[in-house]
Nucleic acid binder design. Sequence first.
RNA 1: UGGCCUAUGGUGUAAUUGGUAACACAGCUGAUUUUGGUUCAGUCGUUCAAGGUUCGAGUCCUUGUAGGCCAACCA
Length: 561
Amino acid sequence: MGEEEKSLNFIEHIIEDDLRAEYVKDQLRFRFPPEPNGYLHIGHASSICLNFGLGIKYNAPVNLRFDDTNPAKEEKEYVDAIKKDIKWLGFDWDTECYASDYFQQLYDWAVVLIQEGKAYVDSQTSEEIADQKGTPTEPGRESPYRNRSIEENLSLFEGMKNGDFKEGDHVLRAKIDMASSNMLMRDPVMYRVLHKAHHRTNTDWCIYPMYDWTHGESDYIEQVSHSLCTLEFLPHRELYNWFLDQLVSENRLRPKQREFARRNLSHTVVSKRKLLQLVENNIVSGWDDPRMPTISGLRRRGYTPESIRNFADTIGIAKRDNVVDVSLLEFHVREHLNKIAPRVMAVLNPLKVIITNYEEGKEEWLDAENNPEDEKSGTRKVPFSRELYIEQEDFREQANRKFFRLKLGGEVRLKNGYIIKAESCTKDEDGNVVEVQCTYDPKSKSGSGTEESLRKVKGTLHWVSSSHAIAAEVRLYDRLFTDATPDGHKDKEFMDFVNPNSLQKITGHMEPSLKDAKPGDRFQFQRLGYFNVDLDSTPEHLVFNRTVTLRDTWAKIEQKT
RNA sequence: UGGCCUAUGGUGUAAUUGGUAACACAGCUGAUUUUGGUUCAGUCGUUCAAGGUUCGAGUCCUUGUAGGCCAACCA
């Protein structure tokens, strides 16, 4: 019941007010209305969580409606990807709808508008129409075709529908007010001729309705009570209402458009158009590249639906411009993955360690906890032997007291194993350490209960047995852009900020339990971060993505000195 | 030179609708820890400005300032 204490966002306040004033709960209905012209991104996730979350909160139906009125940009591929992403996020829609299902109804209504003298066919070029539109500070001029007879309009509009005209010959316009301070009210175009096949209606139509003439009417047909969209549609509201005024009947629910600010994420772009540019210019491998802020990219990267929902929940919804720090998103994945990801050991930057007093050829299988956060997760066996790998960063010949890791003459615990002491090291001709010779304390074995095993040493390192380790490709990701707001600069293009080093591929050495890992499986590589198995992975060639690093306090300490 | 929207810590969002400015992240301290992870405790810091109404203003009014949106046969 703690849920009820949560304060309402401004949309919920509006709904509560409406519930008190005019609606009953049963009339509430929402919709998520993507255009199938690209993949969904983290900004859409916010909108999805808003609309479907409202549906859950008020036990109201939520439609998935494809706003497919522009066949030039839309494809079935996108429809399928969108449906997959919404389901993956954990939501389900009441009815799958398409604006294209309403083409006939929309046409019939348009004819009614013509008959009532509220719409006319304009036969000018788009340039002429644009020229007459005026500017925000000057009124527009009326089209010479504005006062055509109803009969002529009717016959021309029918001709448009029948394919008698080329693209651009005519458009249908609403007759509103060329002097309105709202540019959208200056006789907006309702229909244009487009001789293009539509992914659902194929060539049935060669005129297509514009967004404004479609959206509110679709909401009305579906009896959506609250049509929520982003703030850039705010000026459209007047037109949305004008179109509704022409056709709503008293006894049917009249939809309301309400607007909220789109969510921006730092160090990335959240716009289908810009994401498409990244794909087309091969900056990334595709819409689902793990560096992309698309839902499919985040999924491939290893994000969980829960973490994205929690993120959307935390940032909430409001009306002001915003740039949410990506570290908040990262916090939510870590929070979730910490609870569910099995711990394993993997060495990404190997440095050979020889335990000189450990018998050659001997191997031991040690017990390792799968997840300290989950008692039921049990343990697994990891092999130990004379020759191991640790991370290069975990050894220094000498270091100060703040360095808890291995140094000459110093001791360290090997996680789930023994305490070792570095005795000497060998270097190559360039002076790089290539091998460390250590001794181990045979009585210090983890979990053995001996006095020595309970000894406290400052550092604990992860490691793998070099002969048992399996090699795997590991893909390390960094932010796609070097700037926090790549598309927020007036003098520069967002493309100027693409990080050239956002992907690094290396070969890591994994503990052998990982050999059966399947695409999608998530792990914590201890002390390194959370990783998942990539779609490209095969049993012969494992591929891991780093979802996110662990919080790294050491990196901060080191940076300061 | 127009119309509309917005303004709360570094970031995001709240504030019983005029009554103690709070939650999360980030940052910083410390404790715990066989992950420099987790967990725990503490800490830092906020109402764009100036007037006004009021016993009382983040909230209402006025003016200003700053940012955003609007002139696609895109959505």
